[in-house]
């Protein structure tokens, strides 16, 4: 039986990790809600943002957090273009399947280009405050992990406020709920969908920066993220943002706790076990609404 302090440490780390998962899963859920698109390239953009943060730190000497000034608007633009120029061209009948392939292709291209430009060498940001940590009831918490969690929390809160309190968020939610009806009441659903994609990709920029702070990155890392993220959105119920956030916290916590007896590699399997169990026993997910029934 592991000591109480170790358990407490794992719980804290799990919650911090879960926050990052929640932010990234929110982006995936947004895409799915808007267009029924499973965006495989989400985590590739995440790694791209992490590389840009690393690059700006090691080559330009700026704090990785400042790279967000560039990456967030850049990714927003990429998202809008991605939706308007590529995904909107696909046939509606086979959209779900073909969009998976298209975003998969984008992910592979990003991975290949990252490997070509930055080589396959593992990279890590060396920060002045990188090894700083503080104690809390016997648990050691690294400052960078806390910053990463803070970033994720702020971004999630901003996303929530945007969705609930602004006219744009109202239009976006209407588009997600019923596209035709939204168009009937005068919402320009195409433009809104494009912006929604931009916002989703902007969350990847924030997440990538947070990830770069305390993780060693390499081009093929995105496969390690897309699996857990997709498991999270299925367990949470495809298309449900609160569901995805809940599932992210729960699964992040479980992964962290299972690392004590099983080690890091086997602890990852919890995501896939949860995925298979959810699909076998409750295919619509645990927090899923109307959308999840048919997908």
């Amino acid at each position: 039986m592991p000591s109480g302090a170790l358990l407490f440490q794992s719980v804290i780390l799990g919650l911090l990790l879960g926050g990052l998962y929640a932010l990234l899963a929110a982006g995936l859920t947004l895409y799915f809600g808007i267009m029924r698109v499973v965006m495989i390239a989400h985590s590739a953009f995440l790694i791209l943002a992490a590389y840009l943060a690393w690059w700006s730190h090691s080559r330009l000497g700026v704090d990785p957090l400042l790279s967000m000034v560039v990456t967030v608007p850049l990714f927003f633009g990429c998202g809008v273009l991605l939706q308007r120029l590529l995904l909107a061209r696909l046939r509606p009948v086979t959209l779900t399947m073909m969009s998976v392939l298209l975003t998969f292709a984008i992910a592979v291209v990003i991975e290949g280009l990252l490997g070509y430009v930055f080589t396959g060498t593992q990279r890590r940001i060396q920060l002045g405050y990188g090894s700083a940590s503080f104690g809390l009831f016997g648990a050691r918490i690294a400052v960078v992990k806390l910053i990463a969690f803070g970033l994720a929390a702020v971004a999630l809160a901003a996303l929530y406020l945007l969705m609930k309190k602004t006219t744009f968020g109202w239009a976006l939610r209407a588009t997600i709920q019923h596209r035709d009806a939204a168009r009937l009441v005068g919402i320009e659903t195409d433009r809104v969908a494009g912006y929604g994609f931009g916002i989703g990709l902007a969350t990847a920029a924030v997440g990538g920066t947070a990830l770069a702070l305390d993780t060693t990155i390499y081009p093929s890392l995105h496969w390690h993220w897309i699996g857990p993220l997709m498991a999270i959105i299925v367990v949470g119920g495809l298309g449900s943002v609160p569901g995805a956030a809940m599932a992210a916290m729960v699964l992040g916590l479980m992964q962290s706790l299972l690392q004590i007896p099983l080690g890091t590699t086997w602890a990852q399997t919890i995501f896939y076990l949860a995925l298979f169990a959810t699909l076998a026993f409750r295919p619509q997910g645990f927090f899923g609404g109307r959308l999840a029934q048919r997908f």
């Binding site: 029924r36 499973v38 897309i226 699996g227 997709m230 896939y272 298979f276 076998a280 295919p283």
Partner: peptide, 17 residues
């Protein structure tokens, strides 16, 4: 048991696991 999207997700998860 479910349609399209989940099938793709499971198929990718299978490789990773």
């Amino acid at each position: 048991r479910v349609r399209g999207a989940s099938f793709v997700i499971v198929s990718i998860a299978l490789v990773l696991i």
